[in-house]
């Protein structure tokens, strides 16, 4: 199953916790569901440090200020979870329940974008409301790390003209 609705995602977290081996990931995700980002950041950090023993791919997130974060993404995890595990500032207002579009990501490579399983109608309906929509846009909560996405570069769209792109620092005025 490649795309998961909120309930399935939650169920997966719980199932994984019960099963044992992925309990760190599950703990991090349930933390994400039940508490604040601040609250969960410690456990997320711990999870980020520990991807050993898991099959991973490499994903580069380019944040709003143009800074690159190259991280290991365990196969099967959503890019939203991977970003939060690594304390990358990607919003996820509805916590992966496909009720918002704040985890909008833009694939830099169109060929790689095409390898992501196609978006469902429900994802497209939310994606259409995203700020700065492009032809290679997806919701981070709906894209799961998979082998064919190894080396993917995804950009978090910078929202504001005032926000610094390419390392530019505006002067106070």
């Amino acid at each position: 199953m490649l795309r998961l609705c909120a309930e399935a995602l939650r169920a997966r977290g719980l199932t994984a916790a019960a099963a044992g081996p992925s309990s760190i990931a599950a703990a991090s995700y349930s933390g994400l569901l039940q508490s604040s980002w601040f609250h969960a950041s410690a456990s997320r950090h711990a999870a980020a440090a520990d991807t050993e023993g898991q099959e991973t791919i490499t994903v580069t997130f380019i944040d709003k200020e143009g800074k690159e974060h190259t991280v290991k993404a365990p196969i099967g995890k959503s890019l939203l979870e991977v970003a939060h595990d690594n304390e990358i500032d990607l919003e996820g207002a509805c916590e992966g329940s496909l009720a918002c579009s704040t985890c909008h990501l833009i694939f830099e490579d169109e060929e790689l974008y095409k390898k992501v399983p196609e978006a469902t109608e429900d994802e497209l309906d939310m994606l259409d409301l995203a700020f700065g929509l492009t032809d290679t846009s997806r919701l981070g909560c709906q894209v799961l790390a998979a082998k064919e996405l190894d080396g993917a570069r995804v950009r978090i769209p910078a929202a504001s003209r005032n926000f610094y792109v390419d390392g530019h620092k505006p002067k106070p005025h």
């Binding site: 909120a6 604040s36 609250h39 207002a93 509805c94 918002c100």
Partner: peptide, 18 residues
């Protein structure tokens, strides 16, 4: 009937408790 949309209050609560 859009309880999932309200999940964002978890994030906001984290900010308020800061």
């Amino acid at each position: 009937d859009h309880q999932d949309t309200k999940n964002v209050t978890n994030q906001f609560s984290g900010l308020a408790a800061d």
